[in-house]
C-alpha cells in the first residue's frame, strides 16, 4: 500500500473541499472496497478524508412519505430498519443477499453505491485493463468473461457494476443527494447515477471530483410484492452472475431491474411495461441491444428464468 495522510472532516462541504483541494485525495467511509483496492495498489490515494464524523448516519421520514438515508447508514442498519423491512422489502432482500454479516456491518450506503467492478483482470495488475489504466487495452474481451457484462458495455470495457443494493435502489427510483466542493447540493436520479462508460470506463458515475454523497432518498412506498433473486456460484458470500429485483402489483404490473449484467443496474421502462406479458417478453425487451460474449451469453436465458420464478411466486 502507498502511504497517505489522513483526516476526518467535520461537515460535508469541508469534506468535499478537502478532497477537491488535494491531488489524489479520496473519501473513505467503511473502507471495505477502497482498502481492498489500496492493498493491491489499484487505488493509490495520497490523502484520505474520512466521512464518519459527518453525522450522516440517520434514516428520516420525508414529507412525501418516503425515507432519507444518511450515506453513513450501514448496510446492516438499513436492511434492518422496520420501515425498510415493511415497505421497501426489495432493499432489505438485496442488501442481505450481498457480502457477509461482517462486511455489511462496515459497508455504508454511499460506499456501496460506489463499489468498483469485480472483473478479475481489473484486480490483476499484470493484465491490461482500460478501467485501471486508460488506454491499456482490455484483457477480458478476449479472455474469460463469464462474470462480465452483456449489455451497456463498450469496446473498451465489458465489466459490470457488481453490487446488489443499488439494483433495488434502481427499482425503487431512489435519488442520490450530493454536495459539491463549492457547497452546492444536487439530486441525481438512480437511473443516471452510474454511467454507461463508453470509451472512458475509468469514469463510473456522474459524480464530479470532490462531490460527496450525503443521502439516498427513497420516494413513497410502491406497495406490491417485493422480490430479489440472486444467482451465483455459491449460495452465500459471492457476487451475482445475474440478479433480479422486482416489485409486482396484484394486477401484474410493476418494476424490474437486473444486476450483474451491465455497468449499471439495468432497467428499461419499456421492459417494465411488458411485465404482464411474462418473463420472456420482459427480457426480450430489456436485452434487445445485448452484446454478450460466448462465455456469458448464458446470462440472458438465466435472467429470463430468474424473473419467471419471481412472476410465478407473485401469482401464487
Amino acid at each position: 500500500m502507498r502511504s497517505f495522510t489522513y483526516e476526518r472532516a467535520a461537515s460535508p462541504a469541508d469534506a468535499a473541499r478537502a478532497v477537491a483541494a488535494t491531488q489524489g485525495a479520496k473519501f473513505i467511509a467503511g473502507g471495505t472496497n477502497l482498502l481492498d483496492l489500496m492493498k493491491l495498489e489499484i487505488e493509490r490515494p495520497t490523502h484520505l478524508v474520512d466521512v464518519q464524523d459527518l453525522g450522516l448516519d440517520a434514516i428520516e421520514e420525508t414529507e412525501e412519505g418516503g425515507l432519507r438515508i444518511g450515506t453513513l447508514v450501514s448496510n446492516t442498519a438499513l436492511s434492518a430498519h422496520p420501515k425498510v423491512r415493511r415497505d421497501y422489502a426489495v432493499l432489505t432482500r438485496a442488501i442481505q443477499a450481498g457480502a457477509s454479516g461482517q462486511l455489511r456491518n462496515k459497508a455504508t450506503t454511499g460506499g456501496n453505491m460506489l463499489q468498483r467492478t469485480r472483473c478479475s483482470y481489473f484486480y490483476d495488475t499484470n493484465m491490461p485493463c482500460n478501467k485501471r489504466k486508460p488506454g491499456d487495452g482490455c484483457a477480458a474481451i478476449r479472455g474469460s468473461s463469464r462474470q462480465l457484462g452483456v449489455i451497456g458495455t463498450s469496446d473498451s470495457c465489458i465489466a459490470t457494476y457488481p453490487g446488489d443494493m443499488a439494483v433495488a435502489m434502481r427499482v425503487l427510483d431512489a435519488v442520490v443527494e450530493t454536495v459539491k466542493p463549492d457547497g452546492t447540493a444536487r439530486s441525481i436520479p438512480s437511473a443516471e447515477f452510474h454511467r454507461l462508460w463508453g470509451d472512458t470506463p475509468h469514469v463510473e458515475t456522474v459524480l464530479e471530483p470532490g462531490e460527496i454523497i450525503t443521502h439516498v432518498r427513497l420516494p413513497a412506498p410502491l406497495g406490491g410484492r417485493h422480490f430479489y433473486s440472486k444467482v451465483r456460484d455459491r449460495r452465500s458470500y459471492a457476487f451475482a452472475l445475474v440478479s433480479v429485483a422486482a416489485v409486482i402489483q396484484s394486477d401484474g404490473t410493476g418494476q424490474v431491474a437486473f444486476g450483474g449484467v451491465a455497468p449499471r443496474p439495468w432497467r428499461l421502462p419499456e421492459a417494465d411495461a411488458q411485465l404482464r406479458n411474462g418473463a420472456a417478453a420482459v427480457v426480450r425487451t430489456a436485452f434487445a441491444d445485448a452484446r454478450p460474449t460466448e462465455d456469458n451469453k448464458f446470462k440472458i436465458p438465466l435472467a429470463e428464468r430468474t424473473l419467471a420464478g419471481i412472476l410465478a411466486e407473485a401469482k401464487g
Binding site: G30, G31, T32, D36, D50, G101, Q102, L103, N105, K106
Partner: peptide
C-alpha cells in the same frame, strides 16, 4: 473471516479497516 473482531459491539473484518478509523 479469520480476522473477525467486535468493534463497538458489531463484528467486522479487522483486515479491511484502518486503525485510524
Amino acid at each position: 473471516g479469520a480476522c473477525t473482531v467486535m468493534v463497538n459491539g458489531q463484528r467486522i473484518n479487522s483486515c479491511l479497516s484502518l486503525a485510524v478509523q
